[in-house]
């Protein structure tokens, strides 16, 4: 398929709802972290989630990615109820998250970090891995070729043999994206990808995010505080406060919504 053809196919499919939460409720003791949260992510779009500290954003991401079970409500992913699915099962469906504080495999190199994300590596069966190299070497080489090409694309290729513990904060965020792409993710949830990253790298990061969304139809949900830096890359926004969605719509409308401003000013 030609690039133009692929793009128009992607364009045609854009806008379908990929992920939906319905009335999610999560209580921690007496605190209601999520109080009936319903959001929708559309295919190939970059959706932003904002809200002051403690508004429930990270809890929502944890529920969507399966790290926390909700007390009520549902998570629907591509038409399937995944509310009770363990995290690694959701990843197999293409729903991948990154962490607020990057969580690389510290003692593994950049290349190893990306290779580990390859799906279905026959060499990950420990009972044959050490016995028969032939059983996995072909797959591994193909995976490495893909990993190098992804690393080139995120700009980490010169660092391929560096241990993750020796990367800067910004490079770690790029590594997380590289891992998610390697995973073959169709939906990527990112918790504060721009936090602690210098503005130039933030723009680089988000231009890669938008190109993934536009060209490959990857869906993004992004939690971010530095909305000034990134608003140009965002298609749709939700604002949360006290465990509830208080505004949604086009980013600039949401940013200027009086309730949103009030929640940030600590009303």
């Amino acid at each position: 398929m030609s690039v133009a053809g692929a793009e128009s196919a992607v364009e045609a499919a854009r806008g379908d709802v990929v992920l939906e939460t319905r009335g999610l409720v999560k209580r921690f003791g007496g605190i209601v972290a999520l109080n009936g949260v319903s959001i929708r992510l559309r295919r190939g779009r970059v959706t932003l989630l904002i809200g002051p500290n403690g508004s429930g954003k990270t809890t929502l991401v944890n529920v969507i990615s399966g790290f926390i079970m909700p007390d009520e409500g549902q998570v629907i992913f591509r038409g399937r109820d995944i509310t009770r699915l363990p995290p690694h099962e959701r990843v197999k469906l293409g729903l991948v998250r990154t962490f607020q504080i990057p969580k690389p495999f510290q003692n593994l190199t950049v290349l190893e970090n990306v290779l580990a994300a390859a799906e279905g590596n026959p060499g990950e069966n420990p009972y044959i891995a050490g016995v028969s190299r032939g059983a996995w070497y072909r797959f591994e080489e193909e995976a490495a070729r893909r990993a190098f090409s992804i690393l080139d694309w995120v700009g980490l290729l010169p660092k391929w043999d560096t241990r993750a513990s020796d990367l800067s904060g910004g490079q770690l965020k790029l590594l997380e994206i590289a891992r998610a792409v390697m995973k073959g993710a169709n939906t990527i949830i990112m918790d504060e990808p721009a936090a602690g990253v210098n503005p130039r790298l933030v723009h680089e990061l988000f231009s890669r995010i938008t190109s993934l969304a536009r060209e490959r139809g990857v869906t993004f949900l992004i939690i971010e505080h530095r909305i000034g830096l990134i608003s140009e890359y965002v298609d749709y926004a939700y604002a949360m406060n006290m465990g509830e969605v208080i505004a949604e719509g086009r980013p600039e409308d949401v940013f200027n919504d009086p309730r949103v401003l009030e929640s940030y000013l600590g009303g």
Binding site: S65, F67, P86, P87, H88, V91, K92, V96, R97, T98, F99, K103, P104, F105, Q106, N107, L108, E112, N113, A116, A117, E119, R179, A180, K183
Partner: peptide, 15 residues
């Protein structure tokens, strides 16, 4: 080694 370094992260990439 990946699982040893970070279990959450390993779960997050489907292990």
């Amino acid at each position: 080694r990946a699982v040893r370094d970070d279990e959450d992260s390993a779960e997050a990439i489907g292990k």
